[in-house]
Simulated assay, not measured.
Amino acid sequence: MPVARFDAAGKLAVDEALQRGEAVVLPTPSPLAYVIAGKTAAAVNRARGRPHNYPVATWEPRLDRLAPHLALDEAERRRLGWLLAVERVTALVPQTRDVAAPSWLEPAASYGMALLFGVTWEPIAWLLERHAPLFVSSANRAGALPAVDLRQAVAAFGPEVWVLDGDALRERARPHASTTTLRFVPGRGWEMHRRGIQDSLHATAGRSDYLADVLARADAALHRKPLPRRQDGRGGRPLRRSRSSDRDGPGLGRPPRARPEAS
Rank of each mutant, 00 (worst) to 15 (best):
H52K: 04
E22P: 00
A43G: 08
A108T: 04
D209H: 14
R229G: 01
F157I: 09
F184Q: 07
L145A: 15
G143S: 09
A47V: 15
W121S: 09
A101E: 02
A155N: 02
S30V: 04
L128D: 02
G10A: 03
G251F: 09
G233K: 03
A101P: 00
H202L: 08
P31C: 04
H202P: 00
F135V: 08
A4K: 04
G196E: 11
A67Y: 02
R172V: 11
R247M: 12
S200V: 12
A33R: 09
G21D: 01
T204M: 11
N45K: 11
D64C: 11
R46L: 09
D15C: 12
R217S: 06
A156Y: 12
A41Y: 10
L215E: 00
A33Y: 06
H52E: 12
A147L: 07
L80K: 02
R217L: 04
G196P: 08
V89I: 14
G158S: 10
R174L: 14
A101T: 04
D213N: 06
A144R: 13
P159Q: 04
A17L: 01
A153S: 08
E87P: 01
G206D: 02
L70A: 06
E129N: 15
G10V: 05
L150G: 05
D64Y: 13
R172G: 14
G10N: 02
R20M: 04
E129H: 15
A85I: 00
R88L: 06
P133I: 02
H202A: 08
F157Y: 13
L115V: 14
V119F: 08
G206R: 01
R88A: 10
L32M: 12
A91F: 03
L18R: 05
R20E: 05
L72F: 03
A57S: 15
P61W: 06
F117A: 10
Q231D: 02
E76L: 00
A220P: 00
T28Q: 09
F6N: 10
V35H: 14
V154A: 03
H193K: 10
R188Y: 11
G235V: 13
D73N: 12
P68N: 09
L63W: 04
L115N: 13
A101M: 05
H52A: 12
D73L: 00
P260L: 11
A147K: 05
T180N: 08
S245L: 06
E76Q: 10
G253K: 09
G233Y: 03
T90P: 01
F184K: 05
V163T: 06
L164C: 13
A220R: 00
H193W: 15
A212Q: 08
L92N: 06
L127K: 05
Q152A: 14
W59D: 07
V86T: 14
R240E: 03
R241I: 13
L145F: 15
G196R: 13
R241K: 13
R79E: 11
D73A: 03
Q19V: 13
D209S: 15
Q152I: 02
A153N: 03
R174Y: 11
P226D: 02
W59I: 11
R243E: 10
T180C: 07
